[in-house]
Structure formats: C-alpha cells, structure tokens
C-alpha cells in the first residue's frame, strides 16, 4: 500500500470536491425552494469561466498580470453569472411556476442547450487555454506534490465562500426569508415575504457561487470550452443528491465525497472511466438512500 500516493489522491479529491460543492450549493438552494432541478446551472458556471477568460485575456494583453487580473476577472465573472442566473429564472422558470412538474424541467434542459450553443457560437467550440493567474507561492514548494498553490487558493476561497453563505442564510434578513420560503412557500407569502424576490435572490447567490467555482477550476485545469458546464453540472447535481438535495451542509459533504470517490476511482482503477464512477455513485445513492446522506426522507403528501 502506497500511502503517499493515497494521500496525494485524497488531497486532489478534496480540492475537486470543494469545487463540486460550490456548484452543488446552487442546485440545492434552488431545489430547496422551488423543487426544480436547475439544469442550466452548469451553464451559468461555464459562462462565469468564459467571462473570466475574456476579461483576463483583454487585461493580460494590455499589460496587467498576476493577482490583479485574477481578482478583476473573478469580480466581473461573478457579476455576469449573477445577471445570467437572474435572467434565466425570469425567462425560463418564472412563467412556469404553477405548471406541471415536467414543464419547468424540460424548459431548464432547453435553456441549458441554448446557453451552451450560444457560447459556442459567440466564442468558439474549441478548447481555450486559460491563463495561469495564481502565482506560485514559495512556502508551498515543500508540499507541492500534494497541494499546489492553485489548490491552496481553491481551498481557502471555497471555505471562505461557504462560511459567508452560512452567515448569509443564518443571520441576515434575506437568509431568514429564504429559510421560510424553503419550509413553506405559500405560508411565507402569506406572512408578507416577497417570494419572487427570494427566488431571484436564490438564483443570484447560486450563480455567484457557480461563477467563483468556474474561475477557480478554469485557473486550475488551464483550459475551458463551452461544454464544461454540462459535465460539471451533472456532477454537482450528483453531489447535491448525494448529500441530500435541499440540504446546504449536505451539498458540501456530497461534493467532498464525490470528489474523493472520483479521484480514488481514477487513481486506482482507471482514469478513462472517471465520469462513470460519479454516475454510478449517483445511481447507487438514489437506489439505496434516495434522501441522501444528510437528508431526511420526505413523505409524499397527497
């Protein structure tokens, strides 16, 4: 048993898992409130990565470099993803609020296909090299084998973001409104919560998290294309289901479990089948424990 290798895989898995967790949070929050799988969430993440790529590209060519570029690119990406998430909800989901269950889901799939092809047509269907924006920290050199500088940035940023999200949900006015809406949408409306605004806010927050994830993963893997949102979206959804959909800590746990399971599977069995492990895990979880790791089984009401 090679423990060093195992440890290396574990670290990689945690880094990957924390990205999945960031995207999964968007799924789980939306699902918690309106019971909709926001299929186009992966596309919002992809758009975040693309906007960051464009901003970074323009700035690098104008002579800027390093952390300034990363920060500005991330900020612009976050703004744009939030705008896209907000618009998406307004156009594709809001008119279907009271429609049968299948309708918003199909609408979401349509929106996902639309956005993917929109970016493909407006930019390029090919892979684009994403610039390395995270500088190499010297103090990371000794443990670089396990954790690179980019990985460290990912871990720090995801932890901070999740902490901020927890504070937002627990202690702010809008967070309280979100929790109330999640418990009972009709009741929340009756006590005077502007439910439409809460839903919009949920989409915006989810999109912000997705954009952060998009910038982070793009600067780690070093390449993006219009299709990355699709796979990442499904995996993040898997993570959300794994932890129990609608459950915020569950999404984080699910993301980490999925990331670790995937890297271990790829490292010990076969890297070509990496995606298969994720899907197989999803199927297994849904069959054995449909409520997820942290979720409570929901009784279906008539």
């Amino acid at each position: 048993m090679d423990f060093q290798y195992l440890f290396e895989l574990l670290c990689g898995g945690i880094v990957k898992g924390s990205i999945y967790a960031l995207i999964a949070l968007g799924y789980t929050m939306v699902y918690g409130i309106i019971q909709l799988i926001n299929f186009a969430h992966g596309e919002v993440y992809m758009i975040g990565a693309f906007v960051a790529f464009i901003v970074a590209g323009v700035m690098t060519l104008s002579g800027y470099s390093g952390l300034t570029v990363l920060l500005l690119a991330a900020v612009v990406a976050v703004i744009y993803s939030a705008a896209y998430g907000y618009t998406l909800e307004k156009i594709a989901y809001r008119p279907l609020r009271n429609a049968p269950r299948l309708s918003p889901l199909i609408s979401a799939i349509g929106a996902s296909i639309f956005l993917m092809n929109y970016v493909q047509l407006a930019q390029t269907p090919d892979f684009l090299p994403f610039p390395e924006l995270v500088p190499e920290f010297e103090f990371m050199a000794p443990i670089e084998r396990y954790l690179s500088s980019a990985d460290l940035v990912i871990l720090i940023v995801t932890t901070l973001t999740m902490a901020a999200l927890t504070v937002l949900i627990k202690y702010t006015r809008i967070g309280k409104a979100m929790r109330a809406t999640q418990q009972d949408l009709v009741m929340a409306r009756l006590v005077g919560i502007n439910v439409d605004r809460v839903i919009s806010a949920t989409f915006i927050i989810g999109s912000v998290l997705a954009a952060i994830a998009g910038v982070l993963i793009a600067s780690r893997t070093g390449q993006i294309n219009a299709a990355i949102g699709f796979v990442a979206g499904i995996k993040a959804f898997t993570a959300a289901v794994l932890g129990g959909i609608g459950n915020v800590p569950g999404a984080v746990l699910g993301g980490l479990v999925l990331g670790i399971a995937e890297t271990l599977g790829a490292g010990y069995i076969s890297s070509a089948y990496e995606d298969v492990f994720a899907f197989a895990l999803l199927v297994l979880i849904l069959i054995l424990r449909p409520a997820g790791l942290l979720g409570k089984a929901v009784k279906q009401k008539v």
Binding site: Q35, V283, L286
Partner: peptide
C-alpha cells in the same frame, strides 16, 4: 433500479446512464 424514483431524479439517472453508455 429506478422504479422508485420521482420524475426529476429519474431524469438525472437516465442522463447518467446515457453518459455511461457513451463512455463505455
């Protein structure tokens, strides 16, 4: 295995199956 799943879970699992088939 997916008989028990509700509509939207079912959609995702079938999507997963489709993706697995292609990867294999």
């Amino acid at each position: 295995p997916i008989l028990r799943l509700r509509g939207d879970y079912l959609a995702i699992v079938t999507l997963g199956f489709g993706a697995i088939t292609k990867i294999v």
